[in-house]
């Protein structure tokens, strides 16, 4: 139990710090790298929550594919003048205020609702096979819809980005 708590402490710290750095850094590429850190530590967190398959997918899809996309995006849209422009808008205090209000509301609600509820120490561990069964039975239609969505996104992205 203690080991898990220590693991959580490390993961949470890395996640939170990377996330904050990501939204404050002045360099786009750095931000992308911080995002990698956030996503990777979240993958570890998912393992802690006994969701190994989700964690694997997180690594494969997010860090493998999505991040590459982001890096391409960053490079293709680098402003001609370099990094001179500030990456943060002048109205950032408003954004901070809104985020703070939201954080306050969420924290309050969560503390109010769950207090110091404990997660069980011996949860039902779902194997990947169970996840597969669920997807291809209960959520079959959602799965098909998701595949159509991915196809549409693929075509849409090509159509949008194509030079003509």
């Amino acid at each position: 139990m203690i080991a898990q708590n220590i693991a959580f402490g490390i993961i949470a710290t890395v996640t939170a710090v990377s996330a904050v750095l990501m939204v404050t850094t002045r360099n786009v590429v750095h931000a992308a790298l911080y995002l990698v850190a956030v996503l990777a530590s979240l993958g570890a967190l998912y393992v802690l929550l006994t969701a190994e398959f989700v964690a694997t997918t997180q690594f494969l899809v997010y860090i493998g594919a999505v991040m590459v996309l982001f890096l391409f995006g960053v490079m293709l849209t680098r402003a001609p003048g370099g990094e001179t422009q500030s990456l943060t808008a002048t109205s950032w205090p408003v954004a901070f205020g809104v985020a703070a209000i939201l954080a306050g509301a969420l924290t309050w609600a969560l503390l109010d609702q769950f207090g110091s509820d404990e997660l069980s120490e011996n949860p039902v561990v779902f194997r990947t096979a169970d996840v597969g069964d669920e997807i291809f039975s209960t959520y079959l239609i959602a799965f098909e819809a998701a595949s159509v969505l991915l196809l549409a996104a693929l075509i849409g992205a090509i159509v949008l980005a194509r030079k003509d």
């Binding site: 996640t15 939170a16 996330a19 904050v20 990501m22 939204v23 786009v28 931000a31 956030v38 982001f70 995006g73 960053v74 849209t77 422009q85 500030s86 990456l87 943060t88 808008a89 109205s91 950032w92 408003v94 954004a95 901070f96 809104v98 985020a99 703070a100 939201l102 954080a103 969420l106």
Partner: peptide, 17 residues
């Protein structure tokens, strides 16, 4: 994380960010 994301969406100028 969610609130950090909200801050990022609202405060960052770069669309990729």
């Amino acid at each position: 994380l969610f609130c950090t994301g909200v801050y990022g969406v609202l405060a960052r100028r770069n669309a990729v960010m």
